[in-house]
């Protein structure tokens, strides 16, 4: 990882494609792809799973959030070839037997969206957030990091700061997440 000047690399005459098997929403897909393809592009272009959205393509907006091995990540900042053997969950994998995931239902109930473009990323992020909180993770707004904080609205907002909503549906997004966290319907 030593730093070097950004010199132009000699381009290989032909880019060898790379074989990788991706497990997405429980289904295994064998791909033979250019190693430059991001996980986001592989999902959308190779597997036609277009629920995951491309926003900034540089890890700032969160629209591309997917869940890999239980943890949310920006799929735009990782290469598909790096995910052999991983369990990838996208927005398409959250509903079960045609029933919306509780977080999806809560977003509908609380009107946690306007245009909807950021929503798949918001929902994947929110689902993982609850798991992180359940595992006892602290956040930047946790007063004492050695404690396990209650999931207040301030905690939810901080933990969702990697997902931007251009329509500013934030208040209702927080309400939807709080609703699911409390295990009820409000």
């Amino acid at each position: 990882m030593a730093s070097r000047p950004a010199e132009a690399a000699a381009e290989p005459a032909q880019i060898p494609s790379q074989k990788v098997a991706l497990t997405v929403n429980g289904r295994r897909h064998a791909l033979d792809i250019d190693p430059r393809v991001t996980l986001l592009d592989a999902l959308r272009e190779n597997l036609a799973l277009t629920g995951t959205k491309k926003g900034c393509d540089q890890g700032q907006c969160g629209a591309c959030t997917v869940i890999v091995n239980g943890q949310r990540i920006n799929s735009c900042l990782t290469l598909a070839v790096m995910h052999a053997g991983d369990e990838i969950t996208t927005i398409e994998g959250l509903a079960e037997d045609g029933d919306l995931h509780p977080m999806q239902a809560a977003f509908v109930r609380h009107d946690g969206l306007q245009c909807g473009y950021c929503t798949p990323g918001q929902i994947c992020s929110a689902v993982a957030l609850l798991a992180e909180h359940k595992a006892g993770w602290p956040s930047h707004v946790t007063a004492d990091v050695a404690t396990v904080p209650a999931l207040t609205d301030t905690e939810i907002a901080e933990r969702m700061s990697g997902n931007i909503c251009r329509c500013a549906a934030y208040a209702n997004i927080v309400a939807a997440i709080r609703d699911v966290a409390e295990g009820g319907r409000s």
Partner: peptide, 14 residues
């Protein structure tokens, strides 16, 4: 505290 003050959860997970 320092780690949690940087980036977003998605980025810190990677």
């Amino acid at each position: 505290q320092a780690i949690l003050a940087g980036a977003s959860t998605q980025l810190r997970n990677k």
